[in-house]
Design a protein around this nucleic acid. Structure first.
Length: 983
DNA sequence: GTGGTCTCCTA
DNA sequence: GTAGGAGACCACA
């Protein structure tokens, strides 16, 4: 940059907010994406650049940059934590526009600058200083008073919305002080919007007058006692320190370490086609035409560019990784490098990756065992080179909270994989294990010390299959890992639904077979199975290398094949918003676990055992013989054979059915035996599944129970919990509830339970857009009573409970893809009667039938259905010629968007809640469990009252801004010493 | 020992 | 009628 050059600096962030509030709202025609601020921004930039080229008016920029705030947190927060603390979140329809405006800037071929920790204003101050030193002039495109301190002989401001220049005279006219005194003036007046305190009672007029009188702030504060007005004097003396802090807050930083020098900001000639591509994608037809005219481009021949919407939620078009600073560019396999992934369409990239996978078969002989630090370091250096590290840990247990690390495998490029054994032992130990450490392994802590920085390096993407396991394990060993990608979760997003099966559908062996045409070594083959199974530390190192390195290699290859499919299928947003950010959130929940009181469980076990034994005697008495009550076969013979009870039905395999339902019916007829069997079953169930089993899951180190959540084993997007399953802890009966009292908070803490009320019915009301349901939820009235009232024309007041019960069953039936058969079963009524109810229901709520028909049609056409956030559930068998299979898939397809949308909503809440709690200063409030529509937290007693509203706020607004629900979400939250009382 | 069936716990 | 996990039993190997 040289003398005579002219730098234009656009205050991008400032402009966004101003344009948003000043301009009428505008949405993209085709899909309702809000783009008002984007439109204003593009028009402004184009006008600026046009004016600049019409050399007879205005000044001509030679250098140009658009500058943004990186985030709300800056160095000023360290000086003064309350700075900008009362800023509310931006409006929901503005959020997606932030990313779009950055993309617009790039489409204009303009530098788009932002630096973490600094405000846009600081960058502007820095560049203005640099330009000044180079002898050039600067025009700041903004009207923000915070920037006026920069105005001077070579720096002016320009307000694009009012077409007005701001130079020294304008500043004096507006504020009564020259630009160089603006800092002192703002220090006195403060700023309620940014939460700069200032001196109470001092406004701009008074401040200007005082500065006129005393010259500057320091003099004023030193001689404050001379001020005549009593109130003013006292206020200034009392708040002198606040004024000083305020001065530092408003003073812009002129020496930000900017990565781009001035010479990087040289204004380039306009790239018409690129800009038109973007404008077309935004559907700005007028500006598209103008740009085409001005640049001589043929707009009709230019395609709309795929625009990544950094939208919090459902993708509007392919959500490329453009906005994801955390994620390094995917490393392409050889052969693709010539064109580079960016130059290929998503579909072409998918094809290329699949072909590369097929052409590059897996060769286990190429895997190496790393036995010294230098080699390990060289491999990790390669990972920094490629920006990607596939990793897999080998351990002694499936539970990451108690597993011991035996070794780990890594892969940096397809085919380039290695295993690092750490604690393999020989078989010389006694029966308790033991054995001696085998030689030729890197010392445990040395290897981890070398691995640690790479795992923490945000420029190296860590890829794995079910990487949450490795994350939890490695975190326990003091090795945090980020960022993460998980091939299992990518597959889950791409191919979720019944097509993938409920178990192992996204397991590595299946994925490898499907996508790479390769069957990896089964775990059984290296460690055996059953009684003869050995722990991995006993596996021969050569065999372990083949197995483990292959896993890392396969995961890397799968990642290469699957990741581009996210973009091609428009599922990036689902993965980025609902899966990826949840990995470490759930990882932390698993790590925390929950305290379970062993004494309570043990006492309950005793109680249950005693009651069950008493029942057993009575049952034998009534039956006239001893038999195994727990055997449905024997029980059926006794009840329906020997004793000849009526009403027997057969199960699918021709056995007598002894389900609770049948036994209850018999009991209702006055038979004593079936009643006692039902009670016995309940007690033994509670004992064996809960009170006996749970203590075995208490971790010996943490003394807590750490369930394992699976993020990819349901067809709808729900989580599942296992080992132990904490999502089916009893609640229905008084006896069962007692088990919940054993789930307790630590001393000095409380458990908080927050659950969504009727979330699935609310989702139904939203997606099917049913006026009566929406109204009922808006009014907060009893939804089942309302349904009954509509259906049976009875007033809600004084409604018999049986009527409400039936309506409730129908409401649930609707969510489950109702059938007359199922409803008849549920209500124990004839199928004809159930059918009549359903017809009646559809008469009253025709929108629901429309929704169901539309959902079935979509599922048939596309093979999948979608949640409101775009998660897909595949049901290919809905086209089956078997009517039973078809009907089942139809019901599942109807249920999936409802259950799945609710699951997505709570996932979104979970992703956000930690930050929300931290922002509220509640870092010690910890999320422990998720039970589909409920979240359990543990909080220090003193923080409970503050935490509950934060939790509710996040949960109730979790769908926003991606989806604005037509019905409110409602969350009930309560705190207590144990889970029973909290729920 | 493994896998299927039945039953029952949850949302 | 949807979505799960788990324990007990029992027939099979």
């Amino acid at each position: 940059m040289k003398k005579g050059d002219h730098l234009f600096l656009v205050d991008g962030s400032g402009y966004i907010f101003r344009a948003y509030h000043a301009l009428p709202p505008l949405t993209r025609k085709s899909d309702g994406l809000p783009v008002g601020a984007v439109a204003g921004f593009c028009n402004m930039l184009w006008k600026l650049m046009q004016d600049a080229r019409n050399t007879d008016v205005g000044v001509v920029p030679t250098h140009f940059a658009v500058i943004f705030d990186y985030s709300a947190k800056t160095f000023r927060n360290e000086m003064y934590p309350e700075y900008k603390a009362n800023r509310s979140a931006p409006p929901d329809d503005l959020i997606p526009q932030f990313g779009l405006i950055r993309q617009a800037t790039r489409a204009f071929d303009l530098p788009c600058l932002e630096i973490e920790g600094f405000e846009a204003d600081d960058l502007i101050a820095t560049y203005a200083r640099l330009a000044c030193e180079a002898g050039a002039d600067t025009t700041i495109i903004s009207s923000d008073k915070d920037l006026m301190q920069l105005v001077g002989p070579t720096v002016s401001m320009y307000d694009p919305m009012k077409d007005r220049e701001i130079k020294v005279p304008e500043v004096i006219e507006k504020w009564g002080v020259p630009p160089e005194k603006m800092i002192d003036l703002q220090a006195l007046t403060g700023d309620s919007i940014d939460n700069v305190p200032g001196v109470p009672g001092i406004g701009p007029k008074t401040a200007a007058q005082l500065l006129e009188q005393f010259g500057d702030l320091d003099t004023l504060l030193a001689r404050a006692s001379e001020i005549k007005q009593n109130k003013r004097r006292e206020s200034i003396i009392e708040h002198a320190e606040k004024a000083r802090i305020s001065r530092e807050l408003v003073r812009l930083k002129h020496d930000v370490p900017v990565p781009e020098g001035l010479d990087d900001l040289v204004l380039q000639p306009p790239n018409g086609p690129k800009l038109i591509g973007f404008l077309k994608a935004m559907e700005f037809s007028t500006l598209t035409r103008r740009v085409a005219e001005a640049t001589g481009a043929d707009a009709a021949a230019i395609e709309a560019m795929p625009v990544a919407v950094e939208f919090d939620g459902k993708a509007h078009g392919p959500d490329l990784d453009a906005g994801d600073a955390a994620q390094p560019a995917p490393a392409g396999p050889a052969g693709e490098a010539a064109s580079g992934p960016q130059a290929m369409t998503p579909a072409a990239l998918v094809t290329a990756r699949a072909e590369a996978a097929a052409a590059n078969p897996i060769d286990r002989t190429a895997y190496v065992t790393i036995r010294d630090l230098a080699t390990l370091e060289a491999w990790l250096a390669d990972a920094r080179e490629t920006g990607i590290l596939s990793i897999d840990t080998e351990t002694t247990s499936l539970f990451p909270m108690e597993a011991e690390l035996v070794g780990f495998s890594i892969a940096t490029r397809p085919g380039k994989a290695a295993y690092v054994p750490l604690s393999h032992r020989n078989g010389k130990g006694d029966l308790l294990g033991g054995g001696e450490l085998i030689e030729g392994q890197i010392p445990f802590h040395d290897a981890l010390a070398v691995l640690k920085p790479v795992l923490a390096d945000r420029s190296v993407l860590k890829v794995g299959q079910n990487i949450k396991y490795d994350w939890v394990l490695l975190y326990r060993l003091g090795l945090p890992m980020a960022p993460l990608d998980d091939t299992m979760l990518i597959s889950y997003v791409l191919d979720g639904g019944s097509s993938s099966g409920n178990t192992g559908g996204h397991g590595m062996d299946k994925l490898s077979e499907r996508w790479l045409g390769h069957i990896p070594i089964p775990y059984k083959d290296v460690a055996g199975s059953g009684k003869s199974q050995i722990t991995f530390d006993m596996v021969d190192i050569d065999r372990a290398t083949a197995y483990a390195a292959e896993d890392a290699d396969v995961a890397l290859r799968l990642w290469q094949v699957l990741k581009p499919r996210l973009v091609a299928d428009g599922l990036t947003a689902v993965y980025e918003r609902l899966e990826r950010p949840l990995i470490d959130v759930i990882g932390r929940m698993e790590r925390r676990g929950i305290a379970v009181d062993r004494q309570i469980l043990s006492r309950l076990s005793g109680d249950f055992a005693q009651s069950a034994a008493a029942l057993e005697d009575e049952i034998y008495q009534l039956a006239g013989e001893r038999f195994n009550i727990g055997s449905p076969k024997q029980l059926g013979d006794i009840l329906f054979g020997k004793m000849g009870f009526a009403g027997a039905t057969k199960t699918a395999t021709g056995q007598w059915s002894t389900s609770a339902r049948i036994l209850e019916d018999l009991a209702a007829e006055g038979h004593e035996l079936p009643r006692k069997i039902v009670d016995w079953r309940q007690l033994t169930k509670l004992k064996s599944t809960y009170t006996d089993a749970l203590p075995g899951y208490i971790n010996r180190d943490t003394k807590r129970v750490h369930t394992c959540y699976s993020m990819a084993s349901t067809s709808t997007g729900r989580l599942s919990s296992s080992e132990p399953n904490l999502q089916n802890i009893p609640i229905r009966t008084a006896e069962g509830r007692k088990i919940r009292t054993a789930f307790v908070a630590e001393p000095g803490h409380k458990l908080i339970s927050a659950d969504y009320s009727q979330i699935e019915l609310r989702v139904l009301a939203h997606v099917a857009d049913i006026p009566q349901l929406r109204q009922a939820f808006a009014d907060g009235i009893d939804i089942h009573a309302m349904t009954a009232s509509e259906m049976f024309s009875v007033p809600v007041e004084g409604m018999p409970s049986e009527v409400r019960r039936r309506a409730k069953a129908i409401n649930f039936g609707i969510i489950y893809g109702i059938s007359a058969f199922g409803l008849a079963n549920q209500l124990s009524i004839p199928r004809e009667e159930a059918g009549a109810y359903i017809r009646k229901y559809f008469e009253r709520f025709p929108g629901i039938r429309d929704y169901m028909d539309a959902t079935k049609a979509t599922a048939r056409d596309k093979g999948f259905v979608e949640t409101i956030f775009g998660r897909r559930a595949h049901y290919p068998e809905i086209r089956s010629s078997n009517p039973q299979v078809r009907a089942f898939n139809e019901r599942a397809a109807i249920n999936a968007p409802i259950q799945g949308s609710a699951a997505d909503i709570i996932r979104r809440a979970m992703v956000r809640i930690e930050a929300a709690l931290a922002d509220a200063g509640l870092d010690d409030v910890e999320m422990l469990l998720q039970v589909h529509d409920e979240l359990i937290f543990e909080a220090p007693e003193g923080q409970v009252e503050k935490a509950i509203p934060v939790i509710r706020q996040v949960m109730e607004h979790a769908a926003m801004p991606a989806v604005s629900m037509r019905v409110p979400l409602h969350v009930d939250a309560r705190a207590a010493d144990n889970w029973d009382e909290a729920h």
